[in-house]
């Protein structure tokens, strides 16, 4: 708690700077794409949100496994803390993707492998949050949500590699790591996109820290309330 209290102000500052710089640059100072026009500006929120939606689940998987193996309570709480952030990132990816898809593909939604696996990931996030809320005993809730997290990881990985597994559908493959290859992302978009990704990563860490601190306090409060009832 003391370490996180010291880190948080710096984290808030860095998050604000990178988000304002990346999003501001992406929205105001990038040119229109020759094919996609101004819709290319959706890239700066859609890609970082989609990346973080998957990465948040992977982080939840790692912390859940730490809970299962080491019974470290804070790791279980960190997994729980990350879920709402992951859900919001998934919703952003789905909503911004729909706004982007409508003018480009002429449809808001398509049962494409990547889109469908992302929708299932969104439902897994909802299920994960609901399961934590539904079980009163925190250790049992942590155990059961860890199992759900392992199962959901299949869809987190599928949503990342769906385009490679099934070479069909409307969604294109990633162009960020195609530097030097055919059809890479133009440098005019690359730099602000990397700053936006950094901003989203920092935002996620900040939310996880804030929510984990809140959940630790909630755990302390429930212990004190239990003592009061027994007295």
């Amino acid at each position: 708690m003391q370490l996180s209290a010291r880190v948080l102000p710096w984290l808030v500052g860095l998050t604000a700077v990178s988000l304002i710089l990346g999003l501001g640059w992406g929205f105001f100072f990038t040119p229109d794409d020759y094919k996609q026009g101004a819709t290319v500006k959706i890239l700066f929120i859609h890609v970082p949100a989609a990346m973080m939606a998957i990465n948040a689940w992977i982080m939840m998987l790692i912390t859940s496994l730490i809970w299962v193996v080491r019974r470290h309570h804070v790791s279980a709480l960190a997994a729980r803390a990350a879920a709402p952030a992951g859900l919001v990132f998934t919703l952003i990816a789905l909503v911004t993707g729909a706004f982007w898809g409508q003018p480009m593909w002429n449809t808001w939604w398509e049962w494409d492998p990547r889109l469908t696996s992302f929708l299932i990931l969104c439902l897994f996030y909802l299920g994960y949050i609901a399961l934590w809320s539904a079980i009163e005993d925190p250790d049992t809730a942590a155990d059961l949500t860890a199992v759900l997290c392992v199962v959901g990881s299949v869809f987190a990985l599928l949503s990342r590699y769906a385009v490679k597994f099934w070479n069909q559908g409307l969604h294109q493959d990633s162009t960020i790591l195609k530097v030097g290859e055919k059809d890479p992302l133009d440098v005019a978009y690359y730099v602000p996109l990397v700053i936006c990704i950094l901003g989203f990563v920092l935002f996620f860490i900040m939310i996880v820290l804030l929510r984990t601190r809140m959940l630790i306090r909630a755990r302390r409060l429930s212990v004190l309330q239990a003592r009061e009832r027994m007295a």
Binding site: F28, D32, A38, L91, V95, T96, F99
Partner: peptide, 23 residues
Amino acid sequence: MMPDLGKYTVAVLGAWGAALVLL
């Protein structure tokens, strides 16, 4: 200051608005 988004104004502003509201 505001970039000209042309016929994609609704799509771009809708996506950005929804994302910023959610965040």
